[in-house]
Design a protein around this nucleic acid. Structure first.
Lengths: 171, 171
DNA sequence: TGGATATAGTTTACTAGTAAATTATTTTTG
DNA sequence: CAAAAATAATTTACTAGTAAACTATATCCA
């Protein structure tokens, strides 16, 4: 989808405009999904943009931070495969990220005693300190983006998003 | 943020788990944003993944499709700068995408008579046919992801997302 | 009006991420 | 228990996208 605004604004937000434009061009289609999907994708793009700035200021990509955060939340070391699965990444990108994190001393690699093919990745003290410094900054950036949503509305939003995510992950 | 699940599941979805893990590790932080932001980012990642498969099957990247869709919804040709702004892209990526679309005969370039620095990009008949073929497939993929959300809940979701997007875009 | 500044867009050099093939080890099974 | 199949992870070759520098034209204003 394109979810990206034209010029004429019949009312409402950019997504309403896009939906109206499509309705005029393609009255044969059921365009209801645009209202949800367009806003989710556009919100996500904005959030990621802001949050990547915070990460970049600390020399991290989102993918690298994801790995550090998974390790921070884990009881102990994780295999590259676990990190891959938990962070919804591909195997080669995980390999690359781990190489970069290892080179900078943020994680530590050892061979897995239980499986000669695999490795075990642990967070170093430096890596842990970095996560603990950056994560609150990320939260602050996110909170500021949500500041315009009133408390009761945020509860309703979260409830609705939970239903949405459940529907998506069932597919 | 990492919004990516660990193993222990105290209840609820992956995001609840992540939030609970952070709460245990960092009881000093206000973690409320995770409930919204985590689900938005995770939903977006899943939607994009599915929808990119549809596009790839027709030889398009999301960025290219965004440009074609903006042109399809526009009354006439657009400058690269307009396409760039409307599709929330960077200038070099827009240049690259236009080059690729032009090479494949999906868009047409002419010099802007009103401004010698700029160009005007128009959708060709082939480009238009491609959008009109692919867009319904995208909608169908999206509808199938939303199939688990009941109609009244979808209304509430869309309303909440509108408030969220407004808050984000005000920031 | 003509030099300074701004704008439109592209080019160049680079980075993050991916798909497909590959290596090494473990598990399965006939 | 050895050959076949599966799995863990990496390597190689490539693509999409980006930041910074650059070109060309247009606008501003003294």
């Amino acid at each position: 989808m394109s979810y990206v605004r034209g010029d004429e604004s019949p009312a409402g937000d950019a997504i309403d405009t896009i939906q109206a434009e499509w309705r005029r061009l393609r009255p044969d289609l059921d365009l209801a999904a645009i209202g949800v999907v367009g806003r989710v994708l556009r919100s996500a793009a904005r959030i990621v943009h802001h949050s990547d700035e915070v990460l970049a200021a600390h020399g991290l990509t989102r993918g690298e931070f994801d790995i550090l955060a998974v390790l921070r939340r884990s009881a102990g070391p994780r295999s590259p495969g676990e990190l891959r699965t938990i962070s919804l990444a591909t195997a080669p990108s995980t390999t690359k990220r781990l190489k970069s994190l290892e080179r900078r001393g943020l994680v530590d690699r050892s061979t897995n005693p239980a499986d000669g093919r695999g490795a075990l990745i642990a967070l170093t003290a430096v890596g842990r300190d970095l996560v603990d410094e950056v994560f609150p900054l990320q939260l602050a950036a996110e909170n500021s983006l949500l500041a315009g949503v009133k408390s009761e509305e945020r509860v309703a939003l979260e409830r609705s998003l939970t239903l949405l995510l459940a529907s998506i992950e069932r597919s």
